[in-house]
Structure formats: C-alpha cells, structure tokens
Amino acid sequence: DATGGSAADCQPCPCPSGATCAVVPKTKEVVCTNCPAGTTGKRCELCDDGFFGDPLGQNGPLRTCRACKCSDNIDPNAVGNCNRETGECLKCIYNTAGFFCDRCHDGYYGNALATNPNDKCKACTCSPFGTVDQQTSCSQVTGQCPCLPNVAERDCSACEPGFYNLHSGNGCERCNCNPIGSTN
C-alpha cells in the first residue's frame, strides 16, 4: 500500500524471479500475476495443466514441472491428464490403469505398454457359467479366467473333454458314458 506513508509501504512480490504481483482488494491477499512458464497458483507453487512437480519445493525437494508421464496411454487432447503435484495419471485410455497408465484395467489383460493400441489391453470376457463366482477379471498377463472344476479355455467357456453341463454354474460333470458303447 503505497499510500501508507512509511518506508515499508511497498514490499517485494513474494513470487519467483521477476514475477509481478497484485493485492486482492477485498482480502488483502497477495497473488502473483505473471508466473514463470509452466507454473501457476497464488505463489507460482503449482504446475500448469498437463504438467506435474513441486516448483517451490513446498512438500519436499524442489521438482520442476514436467509433462505428465502416462505411458502414451492418455489422450493429448484431454485436460487434467495427471495430478499436478504427484503426476498420478488420472485419465488413462485404451483400457489401461495404474499410476502411469502402465497396466491393464481390471477385467482386461495384455501389455499396456505395447506400441499399437490394438495390442494393448483386451477384455477378459470370462464366461459367467464357467468362472468362479462369475468373476469378470482374469490374469493380467495370460488373460486366464479362474475356471470352475473341469472347465477349460482361457475364458472358461467350455467343458474339458469327457465332461458336460457347463450351464450348471458349478463346473462340468463327468459324461459317465459306457466305455463299451462310446466311440472315445
């Protein structure tokens, strides 16, 4: 407040090198108005959207703002792709999940880091009849669903040879064919 009449009326802006500041008339709060590139916030303490870090080192060591690292599994057109401080990815696509969009979403399997989106994460599509507790998730790597007794296939959709009645929901039953009258 330059009209106060004392030598301490004007104080330096509490902002990083050279950024200008202003006082909010109502709250008397000081706000930096021209934060360095990639930073924002009242004291230039935050990273811009699409970047993460701790530019003033408020919660630990100083980390300059860097672009979100999400394994190429985000939409570059999207906003709010990662947490501005921690960098946790918030908008994983191609059915990926995890802090860096580096694994498949529950219910999907494959390699989240594959270069071609079509090779990334595929749906488990576990058969509800052949899967334990009708689970929808499968092994992240092989895609194997947890099958009921005597049930076969990756998606638990068929009975093992010599078994029948997948739709019982309790696994498949032995055929009990008379070996004399059966072909195999």
Partner: peptide, 12 residues
C-alpha cells in the same frame, strides 16, 4: 490484459 485471476483453478 487479465480479466480474472483464479490462481488455483484450471479454467477450461
């Protein structure tokens, strides 16, 4: 010039 400062927000 700036019309409105919302320093903690991401205005879209």
């Amino acid at each position: 010039k700036t019309l409105l400062h919302l320093p903690e927000k991401v205005v879209i």
